[in-house]
């Protein structure tokens, strides 16, 4: 039952990330993707790279790694490369969540966080990613607003649930 809940929320998260890429980020003139707006990670490029890095890092943690490698081997991936890498990491998550069950929900994971060794149930790492992506979707929209205009982009989880139930 908990795993069904996680799968529903993951589907919502993935849909919102894809909409953000398709309807907002890819619609921008590419030159704007690299402009530093001076807040948080600055540019859409660095913001998106950070999100992919986090998704990749938490997937490694769930797999038991204590040495967390970066998602990118290069410093400044362009928009196409970033999107490709995002999709690759998202695919790893899809595979993981497809097999997610209630045993996995409570499985204790020993890993590192902020240079400390921690032991936490898997659900805490999964929800960390859900929360982190939500936070950064909001930041991405703020960057777009600073670069261009505010975008009407409905991220309501309740409306997502209602639409899916219809």
């Amino acid at each position: 039952m908990k795993s069904d809940l996680v799968k529903t929320i993951f589907a919502y998260q993935m849909r919102e990330d894809r909409r953000l890429w398709d309807e907002v980020i890819m619609e921008l003139d590419e030159s704007l993707f690299y402009v530093d707006t001076g807040y948080s990670w600055g540019s859409l490029q660095r913001e998106c790279a950070h999100v992919v890095d986090a998704m990749h890092g938490y997937m490694q943690r769930l797999r038991g790694s204590k040495q967390i490698a970066k998602a990118f081997a290069i410093d400044n991936p362009n928009r196409v490369r970033l999107r490709q890498r995002w999709d690759e990491v998202e695919d790893q998550w899809k595979t993981y969540i497809a097999r997610f069950d209630d045993r996995e929900f409570g499985r204790m994971v020993e890993t590192t966080y902020r240079d400390s060794l921690i032991t936490v149930p898997a659900w805490q790492l999964v929800f960390q990613v859900f929360n982190h992506n939500t936070l950064h979707r909001a930041e991405i929209l703020q960057i777009v607003a600073a670069l261009r205009d505010p975008v009407d982009f409905d991220m309501s989880f309740a409306r997502y649930c209602i639409r899916n139930a219809e």
Partner: peptide, 25 residues
Amino acid sequence: HTMAAWQLIFHVLYQGTMRRSQILR
């Protein structure tokens, strides 16, 4: 509308995450 209570709870949680991000901006 009919929704599960857990869906309403998570709506509040995600609204909070987005609003706090907006407030800090």
